[in-house]
Design a protein around this nucleic acid. Structure first.
Lengths: 349, 349
DNA sequence: CGCGCACCTGACAACGTTGTCCAGGCTCTA
DNA sequence: TAGAGCCTGGACAACGTTGTCAGGTGCGCG
């Protein structure tokens, strides 16, 4: 009995409504399958006349090569994955864009997803990307145990961590000098006469937050200032809690005269709180943000270059893909203190 | 002669260093290929004991299903593509994030790329995504001719345009009420006594820019105010040109007393210019931006909900994928005027 | 005129997975 | 105890592409 249909087995058909394949193009152009493949891929060895016929068939049928099949055959996908925390956070926009630019310059596409700071979701996403057989992975860690990536890395998925180091595995990482930046920022406040300086930051289980806290402590210690517990507020993330934390350290018998904000979200909230205060309080924030210069006073910040972080990581990833270094490395990018006014206010009262 | 190698033909090997396949797992577990497939996909019909053996083999080998092969067989990729203008632009962050959330809730991954406002690049990207056989496409148009997508759409790629309508094809589109929003914003200025009102916007070839300009003209006409050419500056994008345009309309014998800014980048630059002026000039901007309330005066804006745009578009896309509507539709989302001070200033001088 | 050579072209297998279908073993009932 | 039915497991083909290799054609040169 002859085959009556192209779908002799139960193949569910194709949700794209039976797109034309190279076989169809070949049939229409009256050439062999492989010749179509050659034309599509611009390989040499095809007469201009044949090429024209094939091209016409391609246009007539609206053929588009199926990259899934191609990947299956070739083993590389020309795509890299990016797992980040939140695309809507302005800090990650430029980073993501930078990674994309580098990928583009290497002819690769970018697939990305947000972990929403949830370790399980990070893991799920990263593994889904590996199942897609991305050539490489840029990860902004949410969790602190990345052993789940070991088989993948061993299997050849180039992996680079950004912004925070990987947990419990040895891998490339690109980060800002969080410790040094925070220390410089706090030292800047001390240099302007402050001694009672508050610190509001994220949970210390997050590497960046811990490093910045360490920088704060180091600067205070260098200046011989004992730190009091009520000056520090750790693990606050929601605007409401930041607000309350700030208000608390600004009241009482010996209120702080300056605040160091551990990240841009904290900074913004603190700016709001300070705007409601009658006396002037100095402020230095970690992370730059748009319009910081337009506020009165302008907000002094320790700026990190998120685009440079992304670019550096992606470049390292592709160097690895091109057969580059095999020893995992830790790359630290410097931060920059930008004085705009708020960090130069003298202690009030 | 027996086969001596798994790579009898010239298959280039695999950049992932010969990852284990289901065949390898099957061999190690001492079961058939299909049984492994069943375990991996959680299909019924496998004894607990067999399942355990297979699972052990999977863990021991670090096996991960190859989705390329799966896609090739099944015809769906469970991924959608997003072509936007610039990931680093804060307007697109929430939009992108919203699309991702919807995709995630449907078990799909998001692949995205930036067109950088370049029609060729938009086309190139969209077609690359189609070659990957994404199930659907969300496009923020950079160009004004999308006929190149016709074969794809016909082939079943669910496509929804966002923020700007598609050019020369009939397709779903989700956008903000740019015309109404701009008209309301300008009317707001008029209601506060302004008559000489400037407009600074993007190139009118961009749909949103044209609509907002139309809204400006409509509001002026409704109020019976003839618009003078020197009040309008179109097609300016770089901060320098925006700056010059603003300065020009603010000088001379009859300077404008208020400015309507056509998008958030323009607004920010205009804020800077106004801060340098001695007299007060009213300002309403299209698009909200972070910290707009913290400036003095707060910046009055016509806000559009970029997350809602993304969510609406993605939901429509998946409804289409689930066999939903076939008639292309145009969905318009309302804007909201947020008064913060800058738009309520009376005309100066 | 014939041989060799260069160049085009196409048949075929393989990439890793999943749908179909059948074989074999088991249980349950008459 | 035999037959019917059910359940588990595996062989096989097919998805659409690309690498290899061999066949065929036309040309130039001896």
């Amino acid at each position: 009995m002859p085959k009556t249909t192209r779908r002799a087995d139960g193949h569910p058909g194709n949700r794209y409504g039976n797109r034309p394949t190279m076989k169809d193009v070949a049939a229409r152009a009256g050439v062999g399958l492989k010749t179509v493949s050659r034309v599509v891929n611009g390989e040499p060895g095809v007469t201009p006349d044949t090429e024209r016929r094939v091209q016409e068939a391609i246009d007539a049928l609206g053929f588009r090569r199926n990259d899934s099949a191609r990947v299956l055959r070739k083993g590389r996908t020309a795509s890299i994955g990016l797992v980040l925390e939140d695309l809507a956070d302005p800090f990650y926009g430029p980073l993501s864009r930078a990674v994309e630019e580098v990928a583009r310059s290497h002819g690769a596409l970018l697939i990305n997803g947000s972990s929403a700071e949830d370790p399980d979701r990070e893991r799920e996403l990263a593994l889904a990307l590996c199942a897609r057989r991305v050539d490489g992975l840029v990860v902004i860690p949410a969790g602190d145990d990345h052993r789940y990536l070991e088989p993948e890395i061993r299997a050849g998925v180039a992996t680079v961590f950004v912004d925070r180091p990987a947990g419990r595995i040895d891998a490339d990482v690109v980060l800002s000098d969080n410790f040094g930046g925070a220390r410089d920022g706090v030292a800047h406040l001390i240099a302007h006469g402050h001694r009672r300086i508050g610190f509001i930051g994220d949970m210390p289980r997050i590497h960046t937050a811990a490093e910045r806290l360490r920088g704060y402590r180091a600067a205070m210690e260098d200046a011989g200032i004992p730190v009091e517990d009520r000056w520090m507020s750790l693990g606050v993330t929601s605007p409401e809690r930041v607000r309350r934390a700030a208000q608390e350290m600004l009241t009482g018998p010996e209120p702080v005269t300056a605040v160091f904000a551990g990240n841009n979200r904290v900074t913004v909230t603190v700016v709001r709180v300070l705007a409601e205060q009658s006396r002037q309080v100095a402020l230095v924030g970690f992370d730059d943000f748009e319009l910081a210069d337009l506020l009165r006073p302008g907000v002094t910040v320790v700026a990190q270059d998120s685009a440079a972080l992304g670019r550096t990581a992606a470049e390292r990833l592709f160097r690895r893909l091109d057969g580059g270094p095999v020893t995992p490395e830790r790359i630290e990018l410097p931060t920059r203190l930008i004085a705009r006014g708020s960090g130069e206010l003298p202690p009030a009262r």
